[in-house]
């Protein structure tokens, strides 16, 4: 059976490749950054297993690694800034990584034409086929893909297949292909780390009772006899808390336990299914507003080489605000139907 762990190992190997390439260029801080980031992918399962059997030091060592990543990302000169520097990008392209002879992408586009689309489209297509069919495929008596994580395993496999296809179309070497991936990864720099780190912060907030403290504060302020006031507090609480945590999933249990369940469902008789569904989506409006949701709002700004790191948020906040208003009205109309 193909497990997600194998995909993680592959990704870990790519990170090690990136670290080694930077090491060769004597960019030690950057090399160290990617080397540490490779650890959760190469040893993640082993660390989790050790923790389960009562041995805490590997997880603690990883914790030290997390702090080291934070310091390296904020200190190292070599790690690219969030505002992309086109010139630096150029030097990285012309750097010492083994590259195919520099060719003008425009001329190359003429030469390869639509064949370039093939490998790019293979990523979604193969992911689709494997995610839908993978759990039903059997090989030597075992299912081909781990059913619980079929989509992510499928994505990893699809990327590998598309990479081979891209190498065949362009006739570039494996080293050159990985070098191009490394160029993009270096250009993203610490922005690549941010989503994982923010999710980690969410776990820390949950473990230290930040959510309960906020729910208690909100509960003290609102007039609990008014059903509408409770609903507004719940909706705004979802948005504000999602904005702070960058994740509606983290906000949901907190706001439900603090306001949704005791006040709206139990006291004012709101329909739980409607409240849960619309409450979560109200939180999603907050996700569109916050830099804390880095993988959706900050990483694309870097990927698209926007000079304004909040450019994507600027493009979507009006949608979020209008939708939030619509959602609150929908809730008020539907939960007490």
């Amino acid at each position: 059976m193909l497990r997600l762990e194998y995909v993680y190992w592959l990704l870990g190997a790519f990170l090690v490749f990136t670290a080694a390439a930077n090491l060769r260029e004597r960019r030690f801080a950057v090399a160290g950054f990617w080397a540490i980031l490779a650890c959760p992918f190469l040893f993640g399962e082993a660390i989790a297993a050790a923790l389960a059997s009562g041995s805490r030091w590997p997880a603690q060592a990883m914790g030290v690694g997390v702090l080291a990543l934070g310091i390296l990302a904020s200190q190292s000169r070599g790690t690219p800034a969030l505002v992309p520097d086109r010139k630096n990008n150029k030097t990285a392209i012309l750097g010492r990584t083994s590259q195919p002879k520099a060719e003008d992408p425009g001329a190359s586009a003429q030469r390869f034409g639509n064949r370039l689309f093939g490998p790019a489209l293979l990523i979604p297509l193969v992911t689709l086929l494997l995610a839908l069919g993978g759990p039903h495929l059997h090989w030597n008596g075992a299912t081909l893909l781990d059913a619980k994580q079929a989509t992510l395993v499928a994505l990893g496999l699809a990327c590998s297949i598309a990479f081979v296809a891209a190498l065949r179309v362009t006739r570039a070497s494996v080293g050159a292909g990985l070098g191009e991936g490394r160029r993009l990864l270096d250009a993203m720099g610490w922005a690549a780390l941010l989503p994982m780190l923010l999710a980690t912060l969410g776990s820390v907030f949950a473990a230290t009772g930040v959510g309960n403290a906020i729910a208690a504060l909100v509960g003290d302020v609102i007039p609990v006899d008014s059903a509408l006031a409770c609903l507004l507090a719940f909706a705004l609480g979802m948005v504000v808390f999602t904005t702070i945590m960058g994740n509606a999933f983290a906000a949901f249990p907190v706001m439900m336990a603090g306001i949704g369940l005791p006040l709206l469902v139990q006291r004012h008789g709101a329909a739980p299914a409607v409240l849960g569904s619309l409450g979560m989506l109200t939180g999603y409006c907050g996700t569109l507003l916050t830099p804390m949701a880095a993988n959706f709002n900050i990483v694309p700004a870097v990927l698209l080489e926007l000079r304004d790191q909040y450019g994507v948020i600027r493009a979507q906040w009006p949608t979020a605000i209008v939708l939030l208003a619509v959602n609150v009205v929908l809730m008020a109309l539907l939960v007490w139907r």
Partner: peptide
């Protein structure tokens, strides 16, 4: 430290997008 390390590992799926970068 244990909490940081454990949560970091639990959330590593978020970096899977890096798999697309070589392609």
């Amino acid at each position: 430290l244990a909490l940081l390390g454990r949560s970091f590992i639990d959330n590593r799926a978020l970096l899977l997008l890096a798999m697309t970068l070589p392609v």
